[in-house]
Design a protein around this nucleic acid. Structure first.
Length: 571
RNA sequence: UGGGGAAUAGUGUAACGGUAGCACGACUGACUCUGGAUCAGUUAGUCCAGGUCCGAAUCCUGGUUCCCCAGCCA
């Protein structure tokens, strides 16, 4: 059998998640006339985060995978008191950045307000909706509890004429905020609380970011959302699990109106270890200054991840790998980081940078000589080519690459030990200079001219290769190192009386100000990504200016030595 | 104590009555001018108890545990 492998790959059929299975099945049975129309419907009241990316990739992904499939971007802007244009702009930018496109299908719920109003009038005429004068507090009392049925509002049996008149006057602005609502007339003792005469419209004398002062009544989610889907002739209305309880109401409204009726499906939202994912909590972190903004590189927001150096491809790969299901789960952030490294390894140009510089003088290197040594830009991608890196007799190496008394398994530089400087020469440490407090401030080495380029003609080997920069040529840079924003896998795991902020990691940001990077980075553009050899992936922060480079560490390289040290510390 | 959902290695997922598989993590080892990458290997699982069946993660019965719902938020 020569083609076993091929058979295997052929028989390995594409595994579809349960939503995609439903879409495939619907296509087979021609349930929607062969159409696949999904939508991503964010409320513009915050920035998008990695959890939204899961939903975005699901909805846009399904549309892209099926011929003729379409995914709408729709702003669910039904609450003017919480929504802002800033959020709309950021959402558009983020979805585009992730690599998705909605072409002309950009919609706003607010564009349907007139239609929704007409539908509401229809419902009133059918005797299925009424204007209720109960206060918010009374409404709550009348609703009953999880175990006790509610009771009918005294306004429940108003005549159609009276309801029509009152509703029109609500719209006309005759009544103050909170004085009355339009409610669906369903069943006050329904076991599903959502069905106990839910509010359809509330009065809000607030300016809307798009409709201005045109409206003072605004539709509630349950009333609006199904209509939006219906108007846009969505086929698969995919949302998160907490809306499962709302589906009967979604269905009820569309059935009563005899309107086009998409199918709602629910999946579990994403949770990630060491981070929070609720807009409310993220907003709190921003407002209280625990982070510098929505795009702080420690935030799980798409803008934060972008600034941190994540690639859209890494995030999309991640979303593909985590799958889609109906049960709550928490994905290990290590999987996200794996997808990140996997993508950046293939795409990032390599460069040398020293985070914590230690001066090295090569005593036998010709005074004043400078050589241009060739370095490979990306060993994973030959087409990335090569570049020149200046070498001289005065260098910086990483402070942690030298130990005066090296423990077992430390392969790097130590007194009397020979190592390779990447793309350069073998050097041997001959002398250690310390200051009065005993700290190592400078190393003296000799180099072997025969090892130019990094190979010894006599075939002798060294145990390790160090990165370096030429002291006279390197650029100064600031580097920001990040760690998880929270110290606990589950930030909500708190002690009595504390909230998630008590689990904030005080060491989530470390700023290094006297780093040195190789001169090829001089004109590096903001948001461009590099691998600093042996250290990790780094991204140029927009805070960089002409004279000053600032880098964010996106993620470190896998680092067995760090692991060994960590294990030793524990002992 | 009402209703709606859901349970597969440490984590995330597949298997749709027929050999419980994949990925991440962890741990070995090989290789290496990045202690990177790559490659090879090890580790470990069907919530519980019954039942149906030649055969059950899958079907049935009964439990257990977890999540969601009492906004004029979405």
């Amino acid at each position: 059998m020569t083609n076993t492998k091929q058979n295997n790959s052929n028989s390995e059929k594409e595994r579809l998640d349960f939503i995609r299975q439903i879409v495939a099945e619907d296509l087979k049975t021609n349930k929607w006339d062969g159409r696949v129309v999904t939508r991503f419907p964010p409320e513009p009241n915050g920035y998008l985060h990695i959890g939204h990316a899961k939903s975005i990739c699901l909805n846009f992904g399904i549309a892209a995978e099926n011929t003729g499939g379409v995914c709408h971007l729709r702003f669910d802007d039904t609450n003017p008191t919480k929504e802002e244009q800033e959020y709309i702009d950021s959402i558009i930018e983020d979805v585009h950045w992730l690599g998705w496109d909605w072409s002309e299908h950009l919609y706003y719920a607010s564009d349907y307000f007139e239609q929704m109003y007409e539908y509401a009038v229809q419902l009133i005429k059918k005797g299925k909706a009424y204007v209720c004068d109960l206060t918010a507090e009374q409404t709550r009392e009348y609703r009953g509890t999880l175990t006790k049925p509610g009771k009918d509002s005294p306004y429940r049996d108003r005549s159609v004429e009276e309801n029509l008149d009152l509703f029109e006057r609500m719209k006309a602005g005759e009544f103050p905020d909170g004085s009355c609502t339009l409610r669906a007339k369903i069943n006050m003792s329904h076991p599903n609380l959502n069905m106990r005469d839910p509010v359809m419209y509330r009065i809000l004398h607030a300016a809307h970011h798009r409709t201005g002062d045109k409206w003072c009544i605004y539709p509630m989610y349950d009333w609006a959302h199904g209509l939006e889907d219906s108007i846009e002739r969505i086929t698969h209305s995919i949302c998160t699990l907490e809306f499962e309880n709302h589906r009967p109401l979604y269905d009820w409204f569309l059935d009563q109106l005899d309107a086009y009726h998409p199918q709602q499906r629910e999946f579990a939202r994403l949770n990630l270890t060491y981070t929070v994912m609720s807009k409310r909590k993220l907003l709190k972190l921003v407002q209280e200054g625990h982070v510098v903004g929505w795009d702080d590189p420690r935030m799980p927001t798409l803008s934060g991840l972008r600034r941190r150096g994540y690639s859209p491809q890494a995030i999309r790969n991640f979303c593909k790998r985590i799958g889609v299901n109906k049960f709550n789960s928490t994905v290990d952030i290590a999987l996200l980081e794996h997808c990140l490294r996997e993508d950046l390894n293939k795409t990032s140009p390599r460069v040398m940078a020293v985070l914590r510089p230690l001066k090295v003088v090569i005593d036998n290197y010709p005074e004043g000589q400078v050589e241009e040594l060739e370095a490979i830009n990306n060993p994973e991608d030959p087409s990335a080519g090569v570049r020149k890196v200046p070498f001289s007799g005065e260098l910086y190496i990483e402070r942690e690459d030298f130990m005066e008394e090296p423990p077992k398994k430390f392969y790097r530089l130590a007194p009397g030990r020979e190592v390779r400087l990447r793309y350069a020469y073998f050097v041997t440490c001959t002398d250690v200079i310390k200051d009065e407090s005993g700290d190592v401030v400078e190393l003296h080495c000799t180099y072997d001219p025969a090892t130019r380029g990094g190979d010894a003609p006599d075939g002798r080997k060294v145990k390790s290769t160090l990165h370096w920069v030429s002291a006279g040529h390197a650029l100064e840079a600031e580097v920001r190192l990040y760690d998880h924003l929270f110290t606990k896998e589950n930030p909500d795991d708190t002690t009595e009386g504390e909230d998630f902020k008590s689990n904030l990691n005080p060491n989530s940001l470390e700023v290094l100000t006297s780093c040195r990077v190789e001169p090829s980075l001089k004109n590096a553009l903001p948001l461009s990504r590099y691998q600093f050899e042996r250290l990790g992936y780094f991204c140029v922060d927009p805070d960089s200016s002409d004279g000053k480079l600032v880098f964010n560490r996106t993620v470190s390289l896998r680092d067995p030595w760090a692991k060994i040290q960590k294990a030793r510390k524990k002992k």
